[in-house]
């Protein structure tokens, strides 16, 4: 597993433990008390690191290459998942995926940004940065869900919508804006989880939901800390400070009333244990869908609008 820069002290301790173990095996000297001591120290260091993460360290966890991805979550959480492709107008964007699945027998429409775990897959998925046809595929599938009365569950994980020539030509702004408006009008429950990076309008484009949750080490931001730093601080290296200023962590986002709750992750991050995180997300979906299953389409629409209508801080 790739160690993040701030995990280096931990990596060194783990290496030492390995060395001692090898030495003990090869030389027949009993080093078990020595090893135990270092293991104990590693445990303390580990807790110390993860209980005091800075926003930019959280961001690194949110971007970890082994972090669970949308398609994996769909398959871990639901039975009978079947992926559906294409926007029926231009193409099929690999950076947004969707399809039908059953969660403990409840049928849902899944939508999510899709990143890869290695360079090859990331290039195919455009690093999870959708083009307009991705948002239009998502819209088509959500409209289908609305038509058949199926709840929608979306997973957010993108650095942002792709900034490219063709994306602009095909109406990136229009594709996102239309999703914001249409999602507000659906008469079925919508639940959103920010599972990794919630990057700007590209994230929100599938995030207008009745309930919004942050995974513990996920981030949600109006602009990437690097982008913000290069504009306001005129130096991309100031991203740490920008990350602090922007208030992007799960705690901040819940504190501001933009998300409703936090899905806990194992110590060190979701990449250490995909299945426990899947179970936590699944439990949350089932709770919310049970609660919302008795609400009328009009109530679902109205409460979703009321939720976003209340967002904003100003003086009057």
């Amino acid at each position: 597993m790739k160690l993040l820069p701030f995990e280096k002290p931990l990596g060194e301790l783990y290496e030492k433990i390995e060395q001692l173990k090898t030495l003990s095996r090869e030389s027949d000297i009993d080093l078990s008390s020595e090893i135990k001591k270092i293991e104990k120290r590693a445990e303390a260091v580990r807790e110390d690191i993860y209980q005091n993460l800075t926003p930019s360290q959280v961001l690194q966890i949110a971007r970890h290459p082994n972090r669970p991805d949308s398609l994996s979550f769909f398959r871990l959480i639901s039975e009978d998942f079947i992926e559906l492709h294409g926007d029926r107008a231009f193409g099929d964007d690999p950076a947004i995926v969707g399809g039908l699945g059953r969660i403990d027998g409840r049928r849902v429409m899944w939508i999510g940004h899709q990143k890869g775990h290695d360079t090859k897959e990331n290039i195919r998925r455009n690093f999870g940065m959708p083009n307009p046809e991705g948002y239009r595929k998502a819209l088509r599938l959500m409209q289908m869900a609305n038509k058949f009365g199926l709840p929608i569950v979306t997973l957010i994980d993108t650095p942002g919508a792709y900034p490219g020539i063709e994306a602009e030509e095909r109406g990136q702004a229009e594709a996102i804006a239309r999703n914001l408006r249409e999602m507000m009008g659906f008469g079925v429950p919508i639940v959103t989880f920010v599972i990794g990076e919630g990057g700007s309008g590209g994230a929100l484009g599938i995030g207008v939901a009745n309930r919004v949750y942050m995974l513990e080490n996920a981030v949600y931001s109006v602009i990437s800390p690097e982008g913000c730093a290069s504009i306001l601080f005129r130096d991309a290296k100031q991203a740490d400070i920008a990350a602090k200023n922007l208030k992007i962590t799960a705690k901040d986002i819940v504190g501001l009333g933009v998300a409703d709750g936090i899905i806990p992750e194992p110590l060190g991050g979701a990449h250490h244990d995909w299945s426990s995180v899947s179970l936590a997300i699944k439990a949350q979906i089932l709770r919310d869908l049970a609660e919302m299953s008795t609400q009328t389409p009009e109530t679902l629409r109205q409460s979703r609008y009321a939720k976003f209508r209340a967002m904003g801080v100003f003086t009057s």
């Binding site: 804006a177 914001l180 700007s200 309008g201 922007l246 992007i248 501001l256 967002m311 904003g312 801080v313």
Partner: peptide, 8 residues
Amino acid sequence: GIMSLMQM
């Protein structure tokens, strides 16, 4: 921050 995004 995020509050600006939510205005969209």
